[in-house]
Design a protein around this nucleic acid. Sequence first.
DNA 1: AAATTAACTTGATTTGGATCAAGAGACCTT
DNA 2: AAGGTCTCTTGATCCAAATCAAGTTAATTT
Lengths: 234, 234
Amino acid sequence: MNISETIKNTPLFHSVDMETIERLAKHCHQKHFVKGRGVFSMGDSAEHFFIILKGWIKLYRVSKEGEEVIIHVFGPGESFAEAAVFNDTKSYPVSAQAVEDVALIEIPRTYFIKKIEEDTGFALRMLGAISSRQHYLVEQIEQVSSRSAPQRVGAFLLRFCQREEMDSKGEWVVYLPYDKSIISSRLNIKPETFSRALLKLEPYGVALEKGKIIVSDIESLRDFCDISSHGWVS
Amino acid sequence: MNISETIKNTPLFHSVDMETIERLAKHCHQKHFVKGRGVFSMGDSAEHFFIILKGWIKLYRVSKEGEEVIIHVFGPGESFAEAAVFNDTKSYPVSAQAVEDVALIEIPRTYFIKKIEEDTGFALRMLGAISSRQHYLVEQIEQVSSRSAPQRVGAFLLRFCQREEMDSKGEWVVYLPYDKSIISSRLNIKPETFSRALLKLEPYGVALEKGKIIVSDIESLRDFCDISSHGWVS
DNA sequence: AAATTAACTTGATTTGGATCAAGAGACCTT
DNA sequence: AAGGTCTCTTGATCCAAATCAAGTTAATTT
């Protein structure tokens, strides 16, 4: 998939017309980071925000005690650090690091802001998209407290699973970071619980392979997780 | 406090200059709703969003089974339904009702959108504010899973407590709705747990009176709840 | 390729909050 | 003001996930 397509598929830009996106894409760069490399550090001037093409990124900060606290984990198709672009400080409040080899689209703040200033339609679309994103976030709040650990894991798999072309079995696959504790931290559960949750999902067609998870019966899983997208306000 | 002051104190408008706010305030109306009255219903055209001066509002929808599901609860100083204003559908996705006698500021969509279209600085400020709000939301996600029930209750009290002028004791007070289950639903805990949590907060200077809660040692409580405002990205 | 290290899995135990249940208090009606 | 209803409180029990702990597997190093 090309850069423009990927940008368009991001929730943030979904309602933006293709012509505008293609002009934006000309100002973006695709970048690769090997596993473990830092993308930005806390305090850095926030010159870009990002969309993940492939791989996983963790946002973290270092506590007073010197230990790393993972703030969030982002995967393929997700954007991050948009908010930093609008900050008064114009600097990143956390650090970002590649958890696996990563491909990113880097969107420059300057062009983005200029576009907002010039094109009020674009500005309104961004406001709409960011507002909608809040719905999604608050939905997550709901899920954390109202769904069981296996349901949360299932919902996560559904969010990131993609059609596997190779084996034509109609199977879906989720590529996970090597370190599963990264994922369990995104789901706010312990690694042990993550492990056990996967076992409980086996009856719904979830199978664990070395670097990936196979979801064979997506409907069954969706049913188990009781995915229902509530509408939302504020 | 007058309308302009209140608007300015809302996170959404905090970085907006007073002159702009005063012009905005001219287009706003203050409204009162008695306990139990509906503010808007799901599907209504979203002509306004709101800031709460006094009282509590619940957002809810009615499930297929016909029972009311509380989506969120908002209190004094909070704004709600801003997102509906940017929706493509331009209609409220949930219903809103006054839980106690309520005073609201009603901000009209039309003027708000016009302002965004005319004033790119204003648009950027709104984007910044809404992004920041996301930080707050995601912080809440964190709190739901990483803090104990008493800590969550404490954090809630700190969020809404205000200096009591009368008794000059330097005490702080939180006025709660009569129905405490409204509050426990905001905190994602059961009424029983809410009740027990308040008991556990007694050693930190929290006392329950009829329609209100007295917080006598705000520092101690803050310490117990381990309030630390993480910065945030995305 | 063996050694070493790190992470995952599986089992046992603990715990915080939910649930179930009964009693006490507050508000509203008459 | 007395009765009735609704909610809050307090107690007992239950359950899901956390924690503690040991054993297994997988990756990396030498």
